[in-house]
């Protein structure tokens, strides 16, 4: 219940910033001279219980941060693999309430959890109530793929009130002005989309990712994590050369779907080795 952001009038000097568990993990990785591995899985795929076990297993196998996806009926930033997984989750009766159970389990296992959600699900629950529930489950913050800072007034206030990180996206199309607006509103880290497109594995991550990270570093000191398209050890190592974190989603979802938790753990270990190859 302690507010972490103080009014400028009460504390003229800049207030000491209390880092979230996720931000602490990113700082520790930076100190080690390596990128963090951020692993995404949606709640409810293939079932709520298995998805939670899988997220905890992924953390134990070497994912530094867990990105907990909330299934939504209209996932316009997601490619086919995550669409199918979240459809399965919704058909199985997954509810938004289940997300907080997953976050609690991950936090209890000592790992950092961010929730990736489309905005209508937060609005429907009530922005402040969603933030309060996330904070009490031990979550670090929200990643919001269809919310831009321009529309985020209520979330900026709620995330301040509940001490949560807020992760907005930047993209290869972002102008310097948009990069400044997006990163200026972020706390914790910045999510850089590697390509123009939706989630899914790709043959190559492409040079746009390096360019967008460089542009982002020009306007912020926050860690920059790169998502979209990374599926294997070599790609993870490649992105880890220039990013603070490598975000993997569809490939992990496919592994879980095809080979269960053992396959998920094996891929996680591969990716964790990848982010350690490019020591800086």
């Amino acid at each position: 219940m302690t507010p972490t952001v103080h009014s400028a009038a009460a504390t003229p000097a800049a207030p000491a910033v209390r880092l979230s568990p996720g931000a602490q993990v990113l700082a520790a990785c930076r100190a080690e001279g390596r990128a963090a591995l951020v692993g995404y899985l949606p709640v409810g795929f293939p079932t709520v219980q298995t998805s939670i076990e899988a997220m905890v297993a992924m953390a134990r196998a070497g994912a530094d941060i867990i990105e907990v996806g909330v299934p939504y009926s209209d996932p316009l930033m997601d490619g086919p693999v995550i669409q199918r997984a979240t459809e399965t989750a919704l058909e199985g009766g997954t509810r938004v309430d289940d997300v907080f159970e997953a976050v609690h389990a991950i936090s209890a296992a000592g790992a950092a959890a961010y929730v990736m959600t489309y905005w209508n699900l937060v609005l429907r629950r009530g922005v402040d109530r969603f933030a309060a529930d996330l904070a009490s489950a031990g979550g670090c913050g929200l990643i919001t793929p269809d919310l831009i800072p321009d529309e985020a007034g209520e979330w900026l206030a709620a995330s301040d009130a509940h001490g949560l990180d807020r992760v907005f996206l930047v993209a290869p199309s972002s102008t310097p002005e948009r990069l400044a607006i997006a990163t200026g509103a972020c706390r914790g880290f910045v999510y850089a989309a590697s390509t123009m497109g939706v989630t899914g594995t790709r043959e190559t991550v492409g040079s746009a990712a390096e360019t967008v990270v460089a542009g982002t570093r020009g306007v912020t000191d926050l860690p920059v994590c790169v998502g979209l398209g990374v599926s294997n050890r070599a790609q993870a190592a490649d992105v880890a050369r220039f990013a603070d974190g490598v975000i993997v989603g569809s490939a992990l979802v496919s592994a879980l779907g095809e080979g269960g938790i053992p396959a998920l753990e094996a891929l996680t270990r591969e990716l964790a080795a990848g982010v350690r190859e490019s020591r800086r």
Binding site: L76, M77, W119, P145, D146, L147, I148, D150, E151, F168, L169, V170, A171, P172, S173, S174, T175, R178, A182, A193, M196
Partner: peptide
Amino acid sequence: QLGRFGEFGGRYVPEALIPA
């Protein structure tokens, strides 16, 4: 400026589309 009709409207889309 914000494309609002009272409280309605706005731009709830990925950042990637904002320049377009």
